[in-house]
């Protein structure tokens, strides 16, 4: 294969990787941005979403599209319910203390992982894509579903952006993010906003899981990778900046897609994690985040 087709393939793979990153990081970024707490169980919410998608898809074996549409409704509801319970029973009681939240969500991470292992078993579960259209380039064929994922993630990102910047609820969220005390003084029910944001973050990552599980596979340990990748994206983009997260996801995804053509995945992962650590060391507020107030 000559240079141009090779580049095209790398860019396509990069676009899919960028979409994957943006989708998984979006929920974490939202929760961190508004609530200023790190949810370590974020990756397990993703895994739960994928598991629900698998479970629904094998309930309706008639057509994968039916299972996919069911999962698109069922997974965010189920994962959102888990997140709601977590927020009410744990996070609210510890007053969203950043350190205690990290410890508690680490506990939740182990809890969900082990429950998923006992309920669903240890084997990887493939899920069929809702459609199997193949785009045929002159040099190679490419999965149409993967491109659909790219488009869908763009739509989802636009939706979140629209809600955040153009609706009343988005305004309330931004006010809460900016100054919790003042928001309370103006009669904003901060507790309910936190609930909603935490549930929304979980629901978004569950949708991401439904979209992505056909090109991955559902497995009870699948949560760690998206968690670390989301950390990377959210940190490089600047803790709490949605725009930064999206730009970081695009940059890292495209770069990663191209680099993975040349290096082993483990090596690429080492480089990526070290890079993040150093970026945080040099610029603790990331590239688009405001310094901690």
């Amino acid at each position: 294969m000559s240079f141009f087709p090779h580049l095209l393939l790398a860019v396509l793979e990069g676009a899919v990787a960028a979409a994957t990153l943006a989708l998984t990081a979006l929920g974490l970024s939202l929760v961190f941005g508004v609530m200023r707490v790190v949810n370590v169980a974020h990756g397990e919410f993703y895994m739960l979403g994928a598991m629900v998608a698998w479970w629904l898809s094998q309930l309706v074996p008639a057509h994968p599209l039916l299972g996919f549409l069911l999962a698109l409704i069922g997974a965010p509801l189920a994962v959102g319910a888990v997140a709601f319970a977590t927020e009410r029973l744990v996070l609210r009681r510890i007053g969203y203390d950043p350190e205690a939240t990290i410890v508690a969500t680490i506990g939740l991470m182990f809890l969900i992982q082990q429950l998923a292992l006992s309920v669903f078993g240890a084997d990887a579960k493939p899920v069929n894509a809702p459609f199997t259209y193949r785009i045929v380039f002159p040099w190679f064929g490419y999965s149409g579903y993967k491109l659909f994922v790219v488009a869908a993630s763009a739509v989802l990102l636009l939706c979140v952006w629209w809600v955040m910047s153009r609706t009343r609820f988005g305004l309330i969220m931004r006010v809460t993010q900016f100054d919790r005390e003042t928001a309370t003084a103006f009669g904003i029910p901060v507790g309910r906003v936190y609930s909603a944001v935490f549930v929304a973050g979980a629901a978004i990552v569950a949708i991401a899981a439904v979209l992505l599980v056909p090109i991955q596979q559902a497995h009870y340990l699948m949560g760690l990778d998206p968690l670390l990748m989301s950390f990377i994206v959210v940190i490089i983009g600047g803790l709490g900046s949605l725009k930064g997260s999206v730009i970081a996801a695009l940059a890292i995804g495209l770069l990663g897609g191209i680099v993975s053509v040349f290096f082993s995945p483990t090596f690429a992962a080492i480089i990526a994690t070290l890079l993040v650590a150093f970026i945080l060391v040099i610029r603790p507020q990331g590239f688009f985040g405001a310094p901690a107030r």
């Binding site: 670390l228 950390f231 940190i235 483990t266 080492i270 945080l280 060391v281 040099i282 603790p284």
Partner: peptide
């Protein structure tokens, strides 16, 4: 790692440790 503080310190240590873990596998 001490150049970062708070949540960033936790995540930096997590990242360094993960890089060490991956290096052991590599």
């Amino acid at each position: 790692a001490l150049r970062a503080s708070g949540v960033a310190f936790m995540i930096v240590t997590l990242m360094f440790s993960q890089a060490a873990f991956l290096t052991i596998l590599y």
